[in-house]
Design a binder for these strands. Structure first.
Lengths: 165, 165
DNA sequence: GAAGTTACGTTATAATATAACATTATGTCG
DNA sequence: CGACATAATGTTATATTATAACGTAACTTC
């Protein structure tokens, strides 16, 4: 597959995945340092699993991964959920509500209102930077104080449309 | 439950709730008739529970309500989930992904891409008609074929902001 | 190094959702 | 009508996702 068909979008065009992981992990470290927070080994471990996947993973997928890595210890759900909670709050990962899953953030720490395009075929997720405005403006208009916006668009990505033909 | 007067926006400004319920139920009947679908008594029952609440309810809340109504029968989860599935597919209710909950649709059958403003204080939800476009246009631009858009904005509604002061 | 705090570990259980199969109701076509 | 097909409901069991509650270890600060 030479000309890796101009894969649709932002987050998922062809890229050096290793390098990407390294950079994002490094950015996460930076963020934590700046904020005087501890990116403990558990937290890092969970983040790394998400970075490695680059796709949404359920909490129990992560748990399984941890238990695969661990030699004998049996890691239990709260450990994962706590790490996820930390990473979410710090904007290092996102939760995909419509899948009960988690995915690493492409702009660590920027608590931007992220938006997602989710392909139901290949399950890949593209994170789109902000984009909207109209929406939040509308909320503002009627005096609604926005905390957090969940924008998740499901469909079929360009690649998968081609393959499906 | 004197929530009636706290309500703020679009979907929740003060209104004749009884009348609203009746109208929406009638609209649902219409939709089903047109589409040659059966709005069976279970389905109607579930829809009515959602209409009566006008707020998001979890599947198990609905289940509890059914069991309260039923005399002795013990209704089980699949019954509720199946009715919900039907109502969802026909666009008579929506699922609020970020709450694992369901809410009746304000425009039955219009499978419009609905958007929600969710107040984390009073838990009321306003359904906004489409409004957007920028988003979907953006998806379109990169060749992403949209199926379904989840837009759920959490925050504090105007009313609750006042009361909180 | 003792006290306070934060993170981690453990056990149990809550909350949400579905698989699989049996039964009943409804439609339909001879 | 009556037999077959289909759709809807009912039932049992279990899967999946998430959290409460409490104990232990690690780090921080004085």
């Amino acid at each position: 597959m030479s000309r890796e068909n101009k894969s649709s979008n932002i987050a998922f065009r062809k890229h050096d995945h290793r390098r990407c992981q390294r950079q994002l992990l490094s950015a996460a470290r930076q963020v934590c340092e700046t904020r005087k927070l501890r990116l403990t080994s558990r937290r890092r471990q969970v983040l790394e699993i998400l970075l490695a996947s680059h796709q949404p993973l359920g909490a129990y997928d992560i748990l399984a991964e941890l238990n695969r890595a661990a030699d004998a210890e049996r890691i239990a759900p709260p450990i994962v959920y706590r790490a996820l909670e930390f990473l979410l709050v710090e904007g290092l990962i996102h939760r995909i509500e419509s899948r009960n899953a988690f995915i690493s953030c492409v702009h660590p720490g920027h608590q931007c209102a992220a938006q997602f395009l989710i392909c139901r075929d290949c399950e890949q997720v593209a994170e789109i930077e902000n984009g909207d405005s109209g929406l939040l403006a509308q909320a503002d208009n009627i005096g609604f104080a926005v905390d957090h916006a969940v924008v998740e668009i499901t469909g079929v990505c360009a690649q998968c449309q081609k393959h499906g033909e």
